[in-house]
Design a protein around this nucleic acid. Structure first.
Length: 569
RNA sequence: UGUCCUGUGGUGUAACUGGCAACACAACUGAUUCUGGAUCAGUAGAGUCUAGGUUCGACCCCUAGCAGGACAACCA
């Protein structure tokens, strides 16, 4: 391995390095660890991954790829009470879906339980760890506070032999849960709370999803993470900011154990406006049925975004775009939406769908006639080809595309006005039919037969083009329209005593029944489309042979709606 | 009243390690368009938390403040 690759500007362009890559390049220049770069993504299998994890996944796997290194997937499974293989499976699925591959480098912290146990023995023998019999409450009391030093445990000065014996018996299952713990002997007066004789091992009679009942003592995060990194030869252990205060402890263990020293680097976790990222709160939303499961398309979980219609590429681009730094941040959702629109614009086939139907009868069109019109699948991609769309006397258009008394800059249909039906004909509205309550039930229009395909031989222009479906051939579909899950930009920011759930948007999901063009009947779950003039949609797995279900991924930008809004102000 | 971290346009990230602040998103204007989309061209918006200091010169270095965040689970 050499450093050539980092100076290769061919594809890297001159995009500035983030601070982590600056550190890495400096390490490479100094030939630290023979210029090897080895990272890891270390989730605890106790929940589903969300877009914040995606940032970390892209960072870790992306960094390894950038520097021709390796990235491990390691399950940090030291707390059997909370972990489960269900989560292991979903995490592997999500990482793969995002487009990353750990190859043979799949590990579990539980693989190292025996070795970590030996590490503990070594500390005991060195006089750097002791078995403590204090209860959880007593220990908490003795720990002091950030501004007040703690008190030393009365068990702190047991002999190494006694500690070793007690520790062995802890493992042998001689003591009940909570009776004893193994602690490091550091400094009860340290200004860093994590250095006040932290717990290394606790007794837990819980069955572990991988080691079963082999163990009844389990190492704590701090005593497992750095050592696992060390065992795997991780050179750069990248984690989020809250572990910054753990770093002195991380380094202390590595140093006392005299083992390979990875370097922990912390970055600011991702926050997205109008949503939450905390696993605990996500779980709450799922358990209390504010959403319909972990893959609810309103959730920022990877599986939720997938179901919503987000592509792996869009999420990877997003991760790249938001950057990596140490200051707290809240990224605007519009940045995420930009990424998915940018991606889908290039790859999603177009289709026509009417979500709020208004019937249109073409009075001068032959009764019973159906013709099939060519429509372009994707104007951004010539290779996508064309398809046939049926046209007939009775159509549906969008209610929004007709106005009785249109304002100045309304380009759509109105009494007497002419518009183009996309890929179809020019039509002019001649009559408005109402029911006994005065509500508009249908429109009568005439079409100009010479404008087939959408152009007039006399060079006549129309300003508006609207989408439509043929009533007889259109297929009914349930369309789920999602809005942001929360009303406020930062749902976590609530007044004293209030709950983040008080900020939930009661209208985050609206289901409508609309009509889609018949070609969509052949779609498969997960397929994405642009419904012309409406937005990007994907076929939901809830679709059955009797019912199509679409999710709106994101609406199209709508500068007309925006200008309307500002005019009303 | 402790330790650690962080303060740059609305948002996020940069600034060749001291040479008068750039890029993206968002916003706005115009052109173009059979999607009020996309595309193209352009406009506006910060003088870098504050006060001192060093320097010919400070976003960058020093000092003192201020503001925000993390840390007191037998969680990770």
């Amino acid at each position: 391995m050499n450093t050539d690759n980092i100076q290769n500007p061919a594809e890297e362009e001159s995009r500035p390095l983030n601070f982590i890559h600056q550190i890495i390049e400096e390490d490479i220049r100094n030939n630290k660890n023979e210029s090897r770069v080895h990272t890891r993504f270390p989730p605890e299998p106790n929940g589903y991954l969300h877009i914040g994890h995606a940032k970390s996944i892209c960072l870790n796997f992306g960094t390894a790829a950038k520097y021709n290194g390796l990235c491990n997937l390691r399950f940090d499974d030291t707390n059997p009470a909370k972990e489960d293989t269900e989560y292991v499976d979903s995490i592997m699925e999500d990482v793969h879906w995002l487009g990353f591959d750990w190859g043979d480098n799949l590990y579990y912290t539980s693989d190292y339980f025996e070795q970590i146990y030996r590490f503990a023995e070594k500390l005991i023998i060195k006089g750097k760890a002791y078995v403590c019999d204090l209860s959880a409450d007593q220990m908490s009391e003795n720990r002091g506070t950030p501004t007040r030093p703690g008190n030393e445990s009365p068990y702190r000065n047991r002999s190494a032999d006694e500690n070793l014996d007690l520790f062995h018996r802890m493992r042998a299952g001689e003591f009940p849960e909570g009776a004893r713990v193994l602690r490091a002997k550091i400094d009860m007066a340290s200004p860093n709370m994590h250095m006040r004789d932290p717990i290394l091992y606790r007794i837990l009679y819980a069955s572990h999803h991988r080691t079963g009942d082999t163990w009844c003592i389990y190492p704590m995060y701090d005593f497992a993470h750095g050592q696992s990194d060390s065992i795997e030869g991780i050179t750069h252990s990248i984690c989020t900011l809250e572990f910054e205060v753990h770093r002195p402890l991380y380094d202390w263990f590595i140093n006392e154990l005299e083992i390979f020293a990875p370097r922990q680097i912390e970055f600011a976790r991702l926050n997205l406006s109008y949503t939450i990222m905390s696993k605990r709160k996500l779980l709450e939303l799922v358990m209390e049925h504010f959403v319909d499961g972990w893959d609810d398309p309103r959730l920022p979980t990877i599986c939720g975004l997938r179901r919503r219609g987000y592509t792996p590429e869009s999420i990877r681009n997003f991760s790249e775009m938001i950057g990596v730094a140490k200051r707290d941040n809240i990224i605007e959702v519009s940045a995420l939406e930009f990424c998915i629109r940018e991606d889908l614009n290039k790859r999603a086939n177009r289709a026509m769908a009417v979500l709020n139907p208004l019937k249109v009868v073409i009075t001068n069109y032959p009764e019973g006639q159906v013709e099939y019109i060519d429509a372009i699948n994707n104007p951004e991609d010539e290779t996508a080809g064309t398809r046939k769309v049926p046209f007939s006397k009775e159509l549906y258009i969008e209610q929004d595309d007709f106005m009785m008394d249109p304002p100045k800059k309304y380009y759509r249909l109105a009494p007497g006005a002419e518009v183009r039906l996309r890929y179809g004909y020019f039509i002019r509205c001649t009559d408005v039919i109402r029911d006994s309550n005065g509500a508009i039930t249908e429109l009568h229009c005439t079409y100009d037969p010479l404008t087939r395909g959408g152009n007039s031989p006399d060079g006549r222009k129309v300003k508006g083009t609207i989408h439509w479906v043929s009533a007889a051939q259109a297929v009914e579909a349930e369309v789920r329209l999602y809005e942001r899950l929360f009303l406020t930009e930062n749902p976590d920011d609530v007044p004293e005593g209030a709950d983040f759930k008080s900020n939930i948007n009661p209208e985050s999901l609206r289901k409508v029944t609309g009509f889609v063009e018949p070609s969509l009947m052949n779609a498969h779950a997960g397929d994405t489309f642009q419904f012309e003039r409406l937005g990007y949609f994907c076929l939901d797995p809830d679709t059955s042979s009797s019912k199509l279900v679409f999710n709106r991924t994101v609406p199209l930008k709508d500068s007309y709606a925006r200008s309307e809004k500002t005019e009303k102000k």
